[in-house]
Design a protein around this nucleic acid. Structure first.
Lengths: 336, 336
DNA sequence: TCCCCCTAAGTTAGCGCTAACAATTAGTTT
DNA sequence: AAACTAATTGTTAGCGCTAACTTAGGGGGA
């Protein structure tokens, strides 16, 4: 780790010091069998003494693997995606991989291809795609990259494998909670319908209502932002059509809460609100938000599990569906 | 981009097709002078026809540069750090660099060394450190890595260069605004005092008060979380010592707002509150939060500017201090 | 005992690229 | 036109590593 002007030690140097051939050293660092215990120890000592570290470029050149996983991500400034990245990075680094990142400011075919080209230039061993737009996956499936692609939040898409939080279950939990409290008119503020999760939650909301014999006509669509939740909240406050709202994420719920507060609609007395995500702040909203918790880090870890399997470098994967959890706080109660 | 079982084309193949030597092709892709226009065009055509892409590993092996910048980051799930990463990634990719990331779950000497070792194994060309603890920089300065280190949020530390948002100016803006409104008892909820920004904001708050002839005795310390803001808010609500509070970040401000609301303290009628960061949600707090905006992406971009200069690959840098901006919303007013 | 086989090493040949040097051509200058 | 210079292109030698092959020693079965 200390800087020095002298050349860094290489296999040859270690070999010389240990009195073996460079190939034997290579065998030791790659855990090949057929190295006697005595030599192995001698080599390991030499490695430690010289502070030898393998040259990644040379290794990549000959193995044609970079030990690097590319993460293609968008919306990185948001809670979910950034935590997924955290999980991915942690698991990948633990497994000895480098994590290269390409963040998309805007999601378009062009920007995706750009990022993918970037990764191919780096000859990544695999690409984790954390871009929650449904058409992204299709675009990528078309590409036939020659390396495994694992997607965050995609099952049901045969072209690309991935891990996901069970969105349907989460929505069920939220809606079920409201129904149990006695609500009969339950609206939904959905996320954009070109987002996988946006669609999944809206569908599950609708299914849960119908299977309880309730109407699913109170559907509105926002863009995940607090601002859009606020706008919709103003309308909702004027109409007073629902006694409860299941909101697609916590940020829109925050906007909704703000609009209700301004309009004198009391939460939960007049209207109950359930969010989705459970960001760290949600417990301090006004009132503290009942919401559905997603374990994004776990999601990221699972993606790497799948990736390692695909690369042929890990155990087979147990499950690719992460269970969500309902967190009840003070934004829900029985209807008046 | 299409997968094929055949070997990818290499310099040699392009050379053959263009009827030149492989070295000439190398000259073209590296923009060397002394290549005639005619040959350059011929080579470029051959490159396009074959879909040639340079092999990074081979190049790295001989140049001893990886075209990779390592980003050592912590607190990535938060708004500021994740947006800084965004700016870094964008600028680095634009400049033709790969971005490798190591996220720290906990900040300790051990975890930092681990991450640095990881980067050295990858032979990154430089390391951007986005870890806001003051002792991190010291630890890194000790290390003498042999590659440039650029820190996010550090001036005044001679050992490591970096870009920063002008924290003092930001605090001045916030406190100045409160003083102008007529407040005389202005408290501060500081961030942890082992964070560079936490210290800087607290000091500037204190300085601004004193230069206006006011007392700076109402200082409390949180941990940046909404929870800590909430706890402090409960105390503050009971004491009623301040007519205005300058809070170290927006999340703590959210907790404070929640505590005040519970305790029946009206904002801004009873107490004015100013935050710091301007997260996208802050405009939808209850009430919408007056706060100091930081341009994190710009901060990240500046870091890469500095890095490129250090690597010897970019123009010299104009300024390394990013100006913050006061955003006035509804959480501040003249004292009763 | 001899032969076969298995283990533990060593040797050789690139991976695809760039830097350094060598060679050729064209363009001046005297 | 000879002799020099500058511009352009080609040739050679690795960068540090691993895969594939080769060789040198034992141990066991006939």
């Amino acid at each position: 780790m200390t800087k020095s002007n002298a050349r860094l030690p290489r296999l040859e140097d270690v070999a010389e010091r240990a009195g073996v051939s460079h190939q034997t050293v290579s065998r030791v660092i790659n855990n090949h069998p057929n190295v006697s215990k005595a030599t192995r120890e001698r080599v390991e000592a030499a490695i430690a003494e010289l502070g030898y570290r393998r040259n990644t470029a040379a290794r990549s050149l000959v193995t044609r693997r970079s030990q690097t996983i590319g993460v293609l991500a968008s919306e990185l400034s948001q809670y979910g995606p950034s935590n997924t990245l955290l999980g991915v990075e942690q698991a990948a680094r633990n497994a000895g991989y480098f994590v290269s990142i390409a963040a998309l400011k805007s999601v378009s075919r062009e920007s995706i291809f750009d990022a993918v080209r970037h990764f191919m230039d780096q000859s990544v061993d695999g690409i984790v795609v954390s871009v929650p737009h449904s058409d992204t996956l299709l675009a990528l499936a078309d590409l036939k990259l020659g390396v495994p692609v694992v997607a965050v939040g995609s099952l049901g898409n045969d072209a690309v494998s991935g891990a996901m939080v069970d969105q349907a279950r989460g929505a069920e939990l939220a809606v079920g909670h409201l129904i149990e409290l006695g609500h009969r008119r339950i609206g939904h503020i959905a996320g954009p319908q070109d987002w996988i999760d946006g669609v999944a939650r809206a569908e599950a909301w609708s299914a849960a209502l119908r299977s309880a014999g309730l109407d699913d006509d109170l559907l509105m669509t926002g863009d995940w932002s607090a601002g859009s939740g606020y706008e919709i909240g103003r309308k909702l406050a004027a109409e007073r059509s629902a006694t409860a709202v299941f909101v697609g994420n916590d940020q829109m719920a925050l906007g909704l809460l703000r609009a209700f507060n301004e309009a004198g609609v009391r939460v939960p007395d007049d209207v109950s609100v359930v969010g989705f995500d459970d960001q760290p702040e949600s417990g301090y909203f006004n009132p503290p938000l009942t919401t559905v918790r997603q374990d994004f880090e776990e999601l990221g870890r699972r993606c790497i599990d799948i990736m390692l399997t695909a690369i042929g470098d890990g155990e087979s994967v147990s499950s690719t569906v992460v269970a969500p959890e309902l967190v009840v706080r003070q934004s829900t109660s029985a209807p008046a």
